[in-house]
Simulated scan of single mutants.
Amino acid sequence: MTVLIVEDERTLARELGIFLHNQNFACTVARTAAEARWQLADTPFDFVLLDLGLPDGDGLDVLAEAKQNELAAAVIILTARSAVEDRIGGLELGADDYLAKPFSLPELLARMHAITRRRFGLHKPTVPVGAFSLDLQNRRLLHAGQEVGLSVKEYDVLSYLVLNKNRVLTRLQLTEHIWGNLSEAGFDSNYIDAHIKNLRKKLGQHADTDWLETVRGLGYRVRV
């Protein structure tokens, strides 16, 4: 998944980026309100980690403007502000959660996982798909209780399709979700096609994969 880190403290932004990268998130950093606005207008992120005290403006104003522009990303406010009014203001503007600084990185990750489950209507971290089950918390695909060996990117493609079950995702949507912002000129649909081919080969050794559909001229869909 892709994450926009809106944070002007360089050390914290770097720590967040390293931690989330190690959890297989694709991260982009914005250190000002202006840069955050530009990134949000340009890229469809999955998460926004938003500091409120930015050098050129208030993070709440960035959030309000983004929501007016129909921001789809989940937003977690990360701030040193302790006033209840700020927390209420952020949540009422559409933030999904709020963490006061200093905070634990594992707690942040747990909250991101919880938001993902809520957004996709999941009641537990394991999702059945065909004869398989997807363990979202531990990033594993299981068949008959045994792990099916997938590469990091193969898992990312499959999990995003599963989370968006019964919805057609284009190759560009899948590519941006996994690799982050790509210009149209740099887009190559072969990236996704190769991963889908590998997934079908690996999964097909265990069970049918009829649920992993190619929608000609559009993209791919997991049908359940």
Rank of each mutant, 00 (worst) to 15 (best):
L4Y: 08
L4W: 12
E9V: 10
L16W: 03
F19R: 04
L20I: 09
H21L: 08
N22G: 14
A30D: 01
A30F: 09
A30L: 05
R31M: 14
T32H: 03
E35S: 14
W38K: 14
Q39Y: 05
Q39G: 00
L40D: 02
L40M: 14
T43K: 04
L49W: 02
L49R: 07
L52V: 12
L52E: 00
G53R: 13
P55N: 06
V62Q: 04
V62T: 08
L63G: 09
K67C: 06
E70M: 03
L71E: 12
L71W: 03
V75K: 10
A83C: 00
L91Y: 07
E92S: 14
G94V: 03
G94R: 01
G94F: 01
D96W: 00
Y98A: 05
A100K: 11
P102C: 06
S104E: 13
S104M: 08
L105C: 04
L105E: 01
E107L: 13
E107I: 11
H113I: 01
H113D: 07
A114K: 09
T116A: 05
T116Q: 14
G121A: 11
G121E: 07
K124R: 14
T126C: 01
V129N: 08
A131Q: 10
D135Q: 07
Q137S: 13
N138K: 09
L141T: 06
L141Q: 02
L142F: 05
H143G: 04
A144I: 02
Q146G: 00
Q146K: 15
Q146H: 14
E147S: 13
G149L: 15
D156H: 11
L163R: 06
N164H: 15
N166A: 12
T170L: 03
R171S: 15
L172N: 05
L174R: 03
I178F: 03
W179F: 13
N181D: 02
S183Q: 09
E184V: 13
F187E: 05
F187T: 02
F187Q: 08
F187C: 01
A194T: 14
I196Q: 06
L199Y: 10
R200G: 06
L203I: 08
Q205T: 07
H206W: 09
E213G: 01
E213I: 13
T214K: 13
V215I: 15
R216H: 13
L218T: 06
G219Q: 09
V222D: 05
V224M: 06
